[in-house]
Design a protein around this nucleic acid. Structure first.
Length: 576
RNA sequence: GGGAGAUUAGCUCAGCGGUUAGAGCAGAGCGCUCAUAACGCUUUGGUCCAGAGUUCGAAUCUCUGAUCUCCCA
């Protein structure tokens, strides 16, 4: 076996204002978890990090709507999201918060380093201030009549009716989208900009060095780098209360009093800060997290993989790298970047605002997480958008989980119990059929490993399913229920192999369906979760005489009645 | 307005220059009876969005167009 590899995995940070839907889940956190669990299963050292993204105007508004101080609101919502993530089996080593002290310090540190490197400029801007709200309003929180088409609810950044891009000052009868107040004025305010334009060549070279990235990813980055005037500088501060105070490291930043960093700047830095939070939570030293993130402190042999939705690619290929490279410090940069398309819901989009589709908490109310994990991962939107329909969900889950895998476990354990009792029977030797099975499994497991390592999620699922099917094919052709009548000893050997197949399946399936896998290990009375480097040896792991119990139904089927009920319930309008 | 992706069997998708285009599900037939009316075997089913071009040869490359989705302006 190869030396143990070290894998750093991050998934895009979910925003704090509400529970995410299944489309969000399958776009980053779930495949990241699959990859993390697989690598742990292979014996690699894994650091899997995620966090809630908590700053910005939407969080403030959501808190105000809930009638709570924003810090309290975020703290509560973080707990809610962390709890749901845990119940979905997302195996983060740490699930942090972008509002953590670690992220405050690190964000201010990066800003200071970028300033030292001459990559920060101060720009004076005119922004709309609402006297009634007592705050500056981001462009999209100003509403008015579109000067182009007359649409009355145009936003300050764009008219959704005629798609014309607008400046807030273009609007006729502008008003605050928050309070409706028309008592608005334009005020001068100063902001810091990150000079991404000055880093274009450096970023370009870095992208060029990633020859193994998908064209989809590099072409998006290249377009941003070279289109028009090239990569634009971006504001990294805002006039808000909720956020990370603008400082140069630990020192004040003259002229920036009362301002905070813009959420896009501090959010990706939380990937790193989350490792710091992990260290604190586990009583570790700084060196323990720095060996994942600082190439001068041990991270030079780390493989770093990011998971995200396609819309997040520019941030991860340009903005965040600009921060890291610009600091002049030896931070670990991403090695592989896996992005996903969108999952649609029954002929339309999942919609958080309209409550259309299934949200993570609702999903767990109606079925265990493994059902969702299996369907979502085996239908992950990798090459294009994919679609969730209840019919497809019911069919796939019933066939794959209940019939192919669940029933396999059931038939072999129950047959053994009735003929040999609840322990692994002894006697019998492997013949041609068994050798053929071992060969097929070896080939298929090899393919499964290659797909997993390439992060080909759907193909991995297909191969795993084929591995389950191989067990049914073997049983069918070996037919121990017939053999038993003439040659009980030979049947015993076949059953012993079948029971060992269950353990093998529990090991291989754990990344997809961890809870079911745990139940199988429990029923088999073993904690031997070693990856099958040698299939023949793995199929002898449970020796004759080893006691087991027949597990309860592993996956109950989804009935037509259930499907119809859920279909109606989730058609639109999250029950408020 | 610019860019990207998609369009292959009823459904969900592989295949991305080389024999008669594949898988799973659904449909049909047969077998088995250990099992969650489960499993196995066989099988029906396709102008590979349209048109033009390159090539000895195209689902696969090029161009044009259509439809859908997303991103950017």
């Amino acid at each position: 076996m190869d030396d143990m590899a070290r894998i750093l995995i991050t998934s895009a940070l979910p925003y704090i204002n509400g529970i995410k839907h299944l489309g969000n889940l399958v776009g980053s956190q779930l495949p990241a978890d699959l990859y993390a669990r697989y690598n742990r299963g292979r014996g690699n050292e894994v650091m899997f990090l995620c966090a809630t993204d908590e700053h910005g105007t939407p969080a403030e508004l959501a808190a105000a709507k809930a009638g709570k101080p924003v810090a309290d609101y975020c703290a509560e919502m973080h707990e809610v999201q962390a709890d749901i993530a845990k119940r979905f089996g997302l195996s983060f080593d740490h699930y942090g918060r972008s509002s953590s002290p670690q992220n405050h310090a690190l964000t201010q540190h990066f800003a200071g380093k970028l300033e030292e490197a001459g990559l920060i400029t101060e720009v004076s801007e005119k922004q709309v201030y609402s006297n009634a709200d007592g705050r500056f309003l981001p462009d999209r929180y100003i509403e008015g009549t579109c000067p182009n088409c007359g649409f009355e609810k145009a936003r300050g950044d764009q008219c959704e009716e005629c798609t014309k891009q607008l400046d807030p000052t273009d609007l006729i009868n502008p008003r605050s989208a928050i309070s409706g107040s028309t008592d608005l004025e334009v005020r001068e305010t100063k902001h810091l900009f990150l000079r991404q334009s000055a880093m274009r060549d450096q970023l370009d070279q870095w992208i060029d060095s990633k020859s193994d990235w998908p064209v989809l990813t590099t072409s998006i980055a290249k377009k941003w780098l070279h289109d028009g005037d090239g990569l634009q500088d971006r504001g990294i501060t805002r006039d808000l209360d909720w956020g990370i105070a603008v400082k140069k490291g630990t020192e004040d930043w003259p002229g920036m009093e009362g301002k905070v960093f813009y959420v896009w700047f501090d959010a990706p830095i939380e990937y790193i800060a989350a490792a710091g939070e992990w260290a604190e939570a586990h009583g570790k030293l700084d060196a323990d997290w720095e060996r994942w993130w600082r190439t001068d402190k041990g991270a030079d042999d780390v493989k770093y993989v990011q998971f995200m939705g396609k819309d997040n690619v520019p941030f991860h290929t340009l903005s965040f790298p600009a921060t890291l490279l610009g600091s002049g410090e030896p931070w670990k940069m991403v090695d592989h970047l896996k992005s996903f398309n969108y999952l649609n819901y029954d002929g339309g989009q999942f919609s958080t605002s309209q409550g259309r589709g299934v949200f993570m908490d609702q999903a767990l109310e109606i079925l265990p997480s493994d059902y969702w994990r299996w369907w979502l991962l085996s239908h992950a939107p990798e090459s294009s958008d994919s679609e969730f329909t209840w019919e497809n969900f019911q069919q796939s889950v019933n066939k794959d989980l209940a019939d192919v895998l669940g029933n396999f476990v059931s038939r072999i354990t129950k047959f053994c119990r009735s003929k040999f009792g609840e322990q692994v029977p002894e006697g019998g030797a492997w013949g041609e059929q068994e050798q053929a099975l071992i060969e097929e499994l070896s080939t298929r497991i090899g393919a499964y490993e290659r797909h997993m390592e390439a992060m080909e999620v759907r193909k991995s699922a297909q191969e795993l399913r084929a591995i389950w099917v191989a067990g049914n094919e073997y049983l069918q052709s070996a037919a121990p229920w017939s053999v038993f009548k003439e040659d009980p000893e030979r049947a015993a050997g076949q059953v012993r192999l079948g029971l060992n197949l269950i353990r093998l399946y529990a090991v291989l399936s754990a990344p997809f369906i961890p809870d079911a896998s745990d139940r199988l290990f429990e029923a088999l009375g073993t904690e031997d979760r070693d990856w099958p480097e040698d299939v023949a040896a793995a199929l002898a792991a449970l020796p004759a005489g080893h006691a087991f119990t027949v597990p309860e139904v592993l996956f109950a089927k989804i009935t037509d009645e259930q499907r119809e009920e859920w279909q109606a319930r989730f058609a639109g309008g999250r029950d408020a």
